[in-house]
Design a protein around this nucleic acid. Structure first.
Length: 473
DNA sequence: CCCGGAAGAG
DNA sequence: CTCTTCCGGG
């Protein structure tokens, strides 16, 4: 039912408001994404706070980011690469466009630059990657900037995983978040090869590429299970996400009674709930992995730099240079944080705002009701939230969060991991300055929530809200 | 199947 | 840099 491979021809009005891939005139190159209209990210409140900066997605003017309150001076290619991807995975809002099913393969004579489709096949020029999805150019354009040239394998894998029609080829492993099984290695390899125009691709080669992800901690192998790998979502999602801090929504009564207790506004303005959900999942998955399963294989520090090369540092989104995203810089890698920062405290028990029932997670593996999360409280106590779901996946947010909600009264805190090379600038508001090791995501100190961390991490959350997108030099 | 070194392409 | 290709070894 998915429209994978299909491409949208006409841009719907809604689409028009979002960055889409448009063919570059005169060249059959990869698509270029830009804002077709300066509409703020849905959910953003243009009046008060900036939503996603308009320059966030599209091409920034050579002279610099677009002016305005919401510009992000980071290069477009850097941070949001994975974010872009995730956003692209959000449920479509438009009927799948109809379009020739069979897109171009590799153009004879020359390798295809960027097909911008999941399947490696069907991408007509100017077609969004996933129909209806925005596809920033720097996420697929080779010349965009380092770190975001062609489609990356993990990227591709996630795409496949997100598409139902490939469920027989590759699918999430139930019960283990981030874990997926390649059910048909040859087919996956074929698709990958097609995408990359490498007809000789096979699973052996593909798996070699996957193995390179081990050291980067993007993936690790699930030992003992054939063709089974597991994503480290903290890398894929959080690392590149300019999210400063996310607080679990308080119970309704808390919301009503003590508005100051939590700061939902800390969530990036206009952050699609699905993405937020993914973020939460990511954190959870990572925490669960590290704290619970403690994969023998890929403990962060153990890996790294065998050859002294720089490869060890994971930079999916490759954010070079100083972080211009301000507040997020405060929140560095968890691993090297004092426990206060590194704590991964479970959120308050389940009752969640109604909005959260809208969460859906096309991106991450669905949670089956039969398989509650470890530590999850009774599903009954959770908001079911089957309403308004667009996807075919069962809603997984609440059960997941429920699984986190073992420590009553505690918060879920998501910290943005600082990508390698990201400079931590002193926060103008707090004066905080940290030098963090960018290399790792989570480590052992994710457990052991400390007390008094609140003051440390969120000295002035309100300020964050105010400055988030801007960080005036 | 899985691992990771080595070399090389782009 | 991210694979792709090849390969010896477990």
């Amino acid at each position: 039912m998915s429209s994978l491979g299909e491409t949208s021809d006409p841009v719907s009005p809604e689409q028009r408001a979002h960055p889409v891939c448009v063919p570059r005139q005169g060249q059959g190159m990869g698509p270029t994404c830009r804002w077709l209209s300066p509409k703020p990210w849905p959910g953003g409140d243009p009046q008060r706070k900036p939503a996603w900066p308009s320059g966030w997605w599209g091409e920034l003017p050579a002279g610099g980011p677009p002016q305005g309150p919401a510009s992000v001076s980071a290069r477009p290619s850097s941070l949001p690469t994975s974010l872009a991807f995730l956003l692209r995975l959000l449920p479509q809002q438009h009927p799948p466009p109809t379009r020739p099913r069979h897109g171009p393969r590799c153009p004879p004579g020359r390798t295809m630059q960027c097909s911008c489709t999941v399947e490696g096949a069907p991408a007509g020029p100017g077609s969004p990657w996933i129909s209806g999805m925005a596809f920033p150019d720097w996420a697929c354009k080779a010349e965009s900037s380092p770190g975001s040239r062609q489609i990356q394998l993990w990227h591709f894998i996630l795409e496949l995983l997100q598409k139902e029609e490939f469920r027989h080829v590759i699918a999430w492993q139930q019960g283990e978040y981030g874990e997926f099984v390649i059910k048909d290695p040859d087919e996956v390899a074929r698709l990958w090869g097609r995408r990359k125009c490498k007809p000789q691709m096979n699973y052996d080669k593909l798996s070699r590429a996957l193995r390179y992800y081990y050291n980067k901690r993007i993936l690790h192998k699930t030992k003992g299970k054939r063709f089974t790998y597991k994503f480290n979502f903290s890398r894929l999602v959080v690392v590149n996400y300019p999210l400063c801090e996310v607080w679990a929504p308080p119970p309704p009564q808390v919301l009503l009674g003590a508005p100051t207790l939590l700061q939902p506004a800390l969530l990036p303005m206009g952050l699609p709930s699905e993405l937020l959900h993914s973020l939460l999942l990511a954190q959870w998955a990572t925490a669960e992995q590290l704290a619970g399963h403690q994969t023998p294989h890929g403990l962060p520090e153990a890996t790294e730099d065998k050859k002294g090369s720089s490869s060890g540092a994971p930079r999916l989104g490759s954010l070079p240079g100083p972080c211009k995203l301000s507040p997020c810089c405060l929140l560095g890698s968890l691993q090297d944080q004092p426990p206060s920062l590194a704590s991964f405290a479970p959120p308050p028990p389940p009752p969640l705002p109604a909005d959260w029932t809208h969460l859906s997670g096309p991106f991450l593996p669905p949670v089956l009701p039969e398989q509650p999360f470890p530590g999850a409280s009774k599903p009954d106590t959770l908001l079911p939230g089957p309403r308004g779901l667009t996807g075919t996946h069962p809603f997984l947010g609440l059960p997941l969060l429920a699984g986190l909600g073992q420590g009553g009264g505690e918060r879920l805190r998501l910290l943005s991991l600082r990508p390698q090379g990201l400079e931590v600038k002193p926060c103008p508001m707090t004066g905080a300055k940290r030098h963090l090791d960018p290399r790792d995501g989570f480590s052992s100190d994710i457990h052991g929530p400390k007390t008094g961390d609140k003051s440390l991490v969120s000295p002035r959350l309100e300020n964050f809200k105010a400055v988030w997108p801007l960080d005036p030099p």
